[in-house]
Design a protein around this nucleic acid. Structure first.
Lengths: 208, 208
DNA sequence: CGTAAAAGCAAACACTCGTTTGGTATCGCA
DNA sequence: TGCGATACCAAACGAGTGTTTGCTTTTACG
């Protein structure tokens, strides 16, 4: 059986028949992502979300059993977009540093341009939604494991802590959401700058 | 006239007489910082804050005209603590890199240990509180100017973008609030690691 | 076509939110 | 000691919150 678009398995009430074509679930998700990104989880109300697509508050509960479940769906989609973008980006290169740079560029372009879903992942803190905090963290950790492997592959001088390097890089990238303004900066060059600042230790003082 | 403790000028209703000794404003501020840090601005309710010190919701409005004004007071105090810690720390050293490292250590220790007030500065986004967003940004910018000067003083190879360096460093430091767990890590060594990862370009290829 | 499921409407529910208003102990000070 | 400002209490306000319940329209499918 085909895996389908992955959005189709999100609703909690499983249809036994195919979804109808006038299904507005995609619009709901898009608007939810937009609202969560702009206002954060608590400040974004159900009425904000559904009102933007002329739907009534109660109607949302046909698609999701709770506001938390809605956030989880948006968050999962955000993580999926990050993973997809980065996976595709690193496939092109073989050299460890080039792969890391490609990953950072893809991460930042997804975060700062393709927007909304990805921004929610960086914006919303799992601890803000205790009921699903563990699931949010698990999703994010799954994605960041990609970077763990990329950093692991780097040829570094001994004594360089790879965990610190990963945390520093991802932290700097994610924090850019705070100060980034389109037009003035662009994601690609920011990511390149950041990687370049770390690349000073030359490759392979030891085994690859 | 003495400058006083700087908390005394916070209330919006200016007393013409000295404050009474049973004044619980300090406790209100401390609890507000605690709540804003733990839950964020929107999720932390007035009742959460005053309830923790057995005060009634309405009583807060003797000290502050609005919830936003309360946040502004907490935020300003947080920025003040950052500034004070970092200013004191960089006074001890003269060498540019040592000063930057000292600043980062002080920043991170303030953020991750002395806690609450400082954490609010990193946790709460100005855009979450539009009415005072501009003032929050101004406060933070004033503090971060400290780092701009520290980075400016570094002897760097030409072609190294100082703005990127500053943004990367502060971003990585601030993001640590997300993953830091006391006991496992400690702020001092984290800050040292981060600075070390950037220090590879040797001092003064050019003028000091 | 007819029918069952899908998708959403309409209206309310109980609750919490920030805030206001009027009153009152209590303290600092002359 | 008395007076007035200080620092609250007590109780409510209207608006907004996530969510539920019963009903209705629309669609895909046999």
């Amino acid at each position: 059986m085909a895996r389908a678009s992955s959005l189709r398995r999100l609703p909690a009430t499983r249809p036994v028949r195919a979804a109808r074509s006038d299904n507005r679930l995609p619009e709901v998700l898009a608007q939810a992502a937009r609202a969560f990104r702009a206002k954060g989880y608590d400040a974004a109300s159900i009425r904000d979300i559904v009102g933007a697509i002329d739907m009534l508050p109660g109607s949302l509960y046909y698609h999701f059993p709770s506001k938390e479940a809605l956030l989880l769906a948006v968050y999962a989609e955000g993580v999926r977009r990050f993973s997809e973008a980065v996976s595709a980006a690193i496939a092109a290169s073989a050299a460890p540093w080039a792969r890391l740079e490609a990953a950072c560029i893809a991460h930042l372009e997804t975060l700062l341009q393709e927007s909304d879903f990805a921004q929610v992942v960086v914006r919303v803190r799992p601890s803000d939604v205790p009921a699903i905090a563990a699931q949010l963290v698990a999703l994010r950790d799954g994605y960041e494991a990609l970077f763990t492997r990329l950093v692991q592959a780097l040829p570094l001088a001994r004594g360089v802590d790879r965990r610190s390097l990963r945390l520093m890089l991802l932290g700097a990238l994610n924090w850019s959401q705070t100060w980034y303004r389109g037009g003035r900066d662009d994601p690609r060059s920011i990511a390149r700058q950041f990687v370049a600042l770390l690349r000073q230790q030359l490759d392979s003082e030891r085994r690859s």
